[in-house]
């Protein structure tokens, strides 16, 4: 082994960036080696391939392309799977470190809780991104092999946006993890939050829209609060340039905001990334790592 491979002991003060990156690297290595990563990657790829094959078979190999059930199926799968993956990965992270005493050890080092949190966030985020890239890459390959002529940019958009969604959900997961005392509680809470975001909020909003005769403007505004709806609308907007496929509310959004929808959706997802992470940092700074 070459001598240069060993880090030169730093006499300078540790920088926040290098601390963060070191923790991120460790987190990524741990994640990639862990069973959850392998399991999630395989499951996501398998389900994605299933969706791709079923939809491509449905179109009868006619080679016609366009926005249809294939893209819809992939969006649907991402909506179910990515939040579950990111929420549980985030929730398990800090809580299990705390349970094992690892958190106290890390905090004993000259590093701040914020650096630790950011490091974990980036490391887990990179692992999730790799998992999504593998899964969606396999889907794109399968669709191409079936002779489907979908525009590749829609798959790229889907990949990019699903990474953004994963980062938002990971942020929420880390917040849960920072607050929870035990891993089991954190993971349980994460699954509850997943259920709330994926099913309960939409079903409640549907019922509310019908019962209260919500105006479509309000319906759209409320939908913007749910990161899953934002991800879905953004994917459609990117693929099709018009949200009119989503009926009156979508038509309203397209006509009212047009190209400004990109920053609007972006702001909503960014808020879901930044806000929980900030709260998690506050919680970690205030609480004893034990």
């Amino acid at each position: 082994m070459k001598a240069a491979a060993y880090p030169v002991p730093a006499l300078r003060a540790p920088s926040a960036v290098s601390n963060t990156l070191t923790i991120a690297g460790r987190e990524l290595r741990d994640a990639v080696r862990s069973r959850w990563f392998v399991l999630y990657t395989l499951a996501f790829a398998a389900l994605g391939l299933g969706v791709s094959f079923v939809s491509a078979a449905g179109s009868g190999g006619t080679g016609l392309s366009g926005f249809g059930r294939t893209t819809a199926g992939l969006i649907n799968l991402t909506l179910l799977f990515v939040p579950l993956m990111a929420l549980t990965a985030g929730a398990g992270s800090i809580a299990s470190d705390r349970e094992r005493g690892m958190l106290a050890y890390v905090f004993a080092q000259p590093t701040s809780p914020v650096e630790t949190l950011l490091g974990k966030y980036l490391g887990l985020g990179a692992a999730l991104a790799a998992c999504l890239a593998l899964g969606l890459g396999a889907c794109a390959g399968a669709l191409a092999a079936r002779g489907l002529r979908t525009d590749p940019s829609s798959i790229l958009w889907l990949a990019g946006l699903s990474v953004l969604l994963a980062m938002g959900m990971l942020s929420v997961g880390l917040l849960i993890s920072a607050l929870a005392r035990r891993t089991s509680v954190a993971v349980g809470t994460a699954i509850f939050v997943w259920l709330a975001l994926v099913f309960v909020s939409d079903l409640a909003l549907m019922a509310g829209a019908v019962a209260l005769r919500l105006r479509i403007e309000d319906l759209f505004a409320i939908a913007l609060l749910n990161p899953l709806q934002v991800f879905k609308m953004w994917s459609l907007h990117a693929a099709d340039a018009s949200l009119d496929v989503l009926g009156p509310a979508g038509l309203y959004a397209s006509e009212e905001f047009g190209a400004r929808l990109h920053p609007i959706f972006g702001a909503s997802l960014a808020a879901w990334i930044v806000a929980p992470l900030t709260l998690a940092a506050l919680a970690l700074s205030r609480r004893s790592p034990l």
């Binding site: 890239a133 969606l136 798959i155």
Partner: peptide, 28 residues
């Protein structure tokens, strides 16, 4: 008349796979 442009999808898939594998290769 079906418009062409199917090749890009396969390439995109390959690029995504390579990116994912790259991250893992760096780490593992």
């Amino acid at each position: 008349v079906v418009e062409g442009g199917g090749g890009g999808l396969g390439l995109t898939g390959a690029a995504l796979l390579a990116a994912g594998a790259g991250v893992i290769a760096c780490a593992a």
